[in-house]
Every structure is written in C-alpha cells, then in structure tokens.
C-alpha cells in the first residue's frame, strides 16, 4: 500500500467505509477468493486436517458461499479470528463473511452494524455432571461448584438461571475450554457449563464418556449464524440464500448424490426446479449463475449431509439434530420458498 494513499485516506476513512463495502460480491469475484472469518479451532465446526485443509460445519458454509460466488469450493481464504477480533475484522472489511459460531443478538445486529443472515445452528447453554453425583436435572444443582469460562455470555446466563430457580452455586472461573475440561476432570468442580455443542464435543474426548451426563435443561438461546456488514444487501442476500438453499435442499430431498440427476431435466416438483435453476431465473436475481444451487449442493451436500458429516451422531462430537431438525421433523430449520 502506498504511503500517500494511507495518509490521504486517513481523514476520509469513515466516509469511505460506507461507500466501498456496497459491492462485496463483485469484489469477491474480482479477487477470485472468498475471505471467510472462521474460528481458529472448534471441534466439529472448524478445524484443520493433517494437510492444513479446514474442515467442519461452519467451514462447509464458507465453502458453499464460495461455490455460489466463484464456482470453486476451495477458493476460500480462512481468516482465523478470536472472539475479540471477529467483529472488527468484519467491520473493517478484512473478511467478506463471518461464519464463526457467533450468536445473533440485538446489540450485535444494530450497535455493531452487522447483519446476521439466518441461523445455521441453534445452540444453547447446558450442564455436564459426573453420573456419580446422581443428578438428573439442573434444578437439583443447588450449592454446586461450577466451572465457567469468564467474560462470556455463559457466565451471565448461569447467574440468571440459578437466581431464577432460587439456588446458590460457587463459580470456579476458567479461561478457556481446554482449562475447563482439565478442571472438571480433576474434580475441581461438580458441574461444567458451556454451549451444548461444546459440551458434547468435550464429553466425547473423555476416557469414559458414559461416566458423564449432559443434563436436559438448556438455559439460554444461542442462535449461531453467518454475519455480513450492514449496507450491502446484495451480498447479504447471497449469503442468506446459500444457507437456505442448503436447508431447503434437505427438505426437498436433494442431496449431493442426486443433485446432478435432478438438475439434468425439470422434475415434477416445481420448487426443486426453481431451486436448481431448471425453471425460472432465480440465480440471475441474486447475481449468480442459474445453476448456483446445483454446484453448491454437489460440492458440499445439503444441510443434513453437512450436519451428519461434521457434528452428527456418527461423529466424535455426536450431536442429535434436536432444534436443528427440519421444521417438518419438529425442528426450527425452515427455508423460505424459492420463488
């Protein structure tokens, strides 16, 4: 970067921030890669394999967006972000989209000037105890010592839950999930609490997972979803509809195995035809090729396939679908009509 540009634009940086961000899709296509803000490492959601390729549930959504925008699932640059740097990185344009298990809250949506584009995982805070304690409900935890990560919303949720239920607890503050696991296993606390997905992943790593039980109460709402900057609605639409194409594809039974076949010729289901671009011009309305959804699903699979591959019951994380099942199966995953 030239020094002169740096000096010249210092003064107008705030003004330019609003102007330059309004064409993210074009920027991504000109650059040839999608910059996706991701977790440095979270079991099941984002982790590097032995060759350094990122894998995971959140990572797959990044790849899906890359396929839609660029036609290439590998054209993603994963920018590792911590919980402190993630929102500034997005606001400053260092990443195009943030898919980093970030909870959708009102203040983040408004005050931080982000746009959350749907929910790809409904999480919630839960409790894990040793079965030896003989506890079967979180309401029996009066007087327990609780390992809790400091400075997170889980800390506040915990205080709320115990106050509402008129119980007392003794917090054992820990800095990271890794430390929490060690403290809990060493018996420094009776209860370990964090998000349900994290607890499940943690429990799966124990020597004897059967000795530990995750209590049924979910004490907070943590809808996790992809976020983009305010003020670029076209790009936000792309992110939103890529996510919901994945969800819709599962509902209509379109999988990575049969998508090419279904897209070869119009089927009897007009919703599938419009989704796959064999009918109508929905792709053009998004500024994408008409077969964008075909490529996305062929590359990464539908929502159910992604779930099962990275965090489903056959993986080490071993999460049940629960709230993340299709609305037809009693869950909350619901794609608006493709029309």
């Amino acid at each position: 970067m030239k020094k002169s540009i740096f000096l010249g634009t210092l003064a107008v940086a705030g003004l330019a921030a609003g102007l330059a961000s309004a064409q993210t899709l074009a920027d991504v296509q000109a650059r040839g890669t999608l910059k996706c803000g991701s977790n440095e490492g979270l079991a099941g959601f984002a982790a590097p394999d032995a060759n350094g390729n990122m894998q995971g549930f959140d990572v797959s959504l990044c790849r899906a967006i890359a396929v839609a925008a660029l036609g290439d699932a590998q054209a993603v640059e994963f920018v590792p972000l911590t919980s402190q740097t993630r929102f500034t990185a997005l606001a400053a344009g260092e990443v195009d989209v943030l898919v980093r298990n970030s909870t959708w809250t009102l203040s983040r949506d408004t005050d931080l000037k982000l746009d959350f584009k749907g929910v790809n995982y409904y999480d919630g805070q839960a409790f894990m105890v040793n079965t030896a304690l003989g506890v079967s409900s979180a309401r029996e935890l009066d007087g327990a010592t609780v390992c809790i990560q400091t400075g997170t919303t889980t800390e506040l949720n915990l205080a709320d839950f115990f106050r509402v239920n008129n119980m007392t607890y003794e917090p054992v503050p820990v800095a990271t999930n890794a430390e929490g696991q060690q403290q809990y296993l060493a018996g420094a606390c009776d209860v370990y609490t964090t998000d349900m997905s994290g607890l499940a992943a943690t429990r799966a790593t124990f020597e004897s997972p059967a000795d530990h039980v995750i209590l049924p109460e979910i004490v907070s709402k943590e809808p996790l979803g992809p976020a983009v900057r305010h003020g670029d609605n076209e790009w936000g639409d792309v992110v939103y509809w890529v996510l919901h194409a994945l969800i819709g594809a599962e509902e209509y039974g379109v999988t990575s195995a049969n998508v090419r076949e279904l897209a070869a010729a119009p089927t009897e289901n007009p919703e599938i035809n419009r989704l796959l671009g064999t009918e109508g011009e929905l792709g053009a309305m998004l500024g994408l090729p008409n077969d964008w959804a075909v490529n996305v699903i062929a590359a990464v699979g539908n929502y159910g396939e992604i779930f099962e591959a990275h965090i489903g019951e056959n993986t080490p994380v071993g999460l049940a679908r629960g709230l993340n099942a299709q609305w037809t199966d009693g869950g909350l995953m619901y794609a608006p009509p493709f029309r």
Binding site: F6, T9, A20, T88, A89, E94
Partner: peptide
C-alpha cells in the same frame, strides 16, 4: 483498521 481505508 479504523484508520485505514476499508479493503486495504
């Protein structure tokens, strides 16, 4: 980042 032009 707040002082640098976005995108740069």
């Amino acid at each position: 980042k707040y002082f640098l032009p976005p995108g740069s």
